[in-house]
Computed example of a mutant assay.
Amino acid sequence: MTEIGAEDDGTKAIVISSEIESAAEQEEFQGLNVCRSAALSTLFGRDSIAVQQLAPEMRAMGFSEQLSSGAVDWPDITPEDLIPDGGSHQEAYRDGGIPDRVQLWQILNDTGSSRAAYPFLIAVLGSPLERESVAAAATLWRQLSKFQGSQTLDPGALFMLHSVYASWDWGQGFTPWLSVEPYTDDLHVIPWNPQQWEDSYRKVMDQWRPAGENPKVWQGVFVLCRLAQLRLEIALRSQDVVTR
């Protein structure tokens, strides 16, 4: 492992590691997993030149030779991409739909498939570590927001999402529920509450249950998009300048 960056202005050095275990939810590896989410966004963007330029750094972060070569051309997301496709993907989900991020990181690098990238990001999204969860949210939002409002949803899912949003203190009674983009004006500061975020994440994942029988594909797209938006809304109000 190596460290990059000085510890000034309250920002810790980023630990760089190619070890599979570094994908785990640990403060030591938070900066590394932020960078991995950003690199995945570049892969989704199909910018082969940018990937090639980042190849040494991506390899140092544990991306496979295939993923860091610039030769991967991931297709546009479909709702079905969010559902585990059996085998090891299915086994990587545990605890009623919560994905095992270390196993999914391994699968992603073994297969080079975007169908492993999405579940990995969904897992990082649920992290109680503030910066890595919002980095995953930003990458997911860019991919999922195109599907907003495209299908009729289960009223139970809408009620659940509304209650999750309403559980956060937005200040002066404002809840950014009806907006289609993260809200940016007159922001009320929301101190980071990792336990509340984990609770919100688990409520959504419990509703979706991606590893269960007959997963609700379109509902999964919508609730995950709204969950990513919620995380971005909270981040815009963070006391942490890096998160904002």
Rank of each mutant, 00 (worst) to 15 (best):
M1F: 13
I4A: 15
G5H: 04
D9H: 15
D9Y: 10
A13K: 05
I16N: 00
E21Y: 14
S22L: 08
F29T: 00
G31A: 06
L32W: 03
N33D: 11
C35Y: 10
R36Q: 00
L40Q: 02
L40K: 01
D47S: 12
R59S: 12
R59I: 07
A60M: 00
G62Y: 02
G62M: 05
S64Q: 12
G70R: 04
V72K: 13
V72A: 14
V72Y: 12
D73M: 10
W74A: 10
I77A: 05
E80I: 13
P84E: 05
S88C: 12
D95E: 08
I98H: 09
R101H: 09
R101Q: 08
Q103N: 13
W105V: 02
Q106R: 13
Q106H: 07
D110C: 05
S114D: 15
Y118P: 04
P119N: 04
L121W: 05
V124L: 13
R131E: 05
S133Q: 11
S133I: 12
S133A: 14
V134D: 05
A138Y: 06
A138D: 06
T139M: 02
W141Y: 08
Q143N: 09
S145I: 09
K146R: 10
T152K: 15
D154Q: 02
P155Y: 11
A157I: 11
L158G: 08
F159G: 15
M160W: 05
H162A: 15
S163C: 08
V164F: 03
S167G: 06
W168Y: 01
W170E: 00
F174T: 03
F174N: 07
T175W: 06
T175M: 09
S179I: 07
S179Y: 02
E181Q: 03
E181C: 03
T184W: 15
D185H: 10
D186G: 04
D186C: 09
L187P: 04
V189D: 13
W197S: 05
D199W: 15
R202Y: 04
K203V: 12
M205T: 05
M205P: 04
Q207W: 12
P210L: 07
N214M: 14
V217H: 06
W218V: 12
V221D: 06
F222S: 11
V223T: 10
C225R: 08
A228W: 03
R231V: 00
E233Y: 02
I234A: 02
A235T: 02
S238T: 11
Q239N: 11
D240S: 09
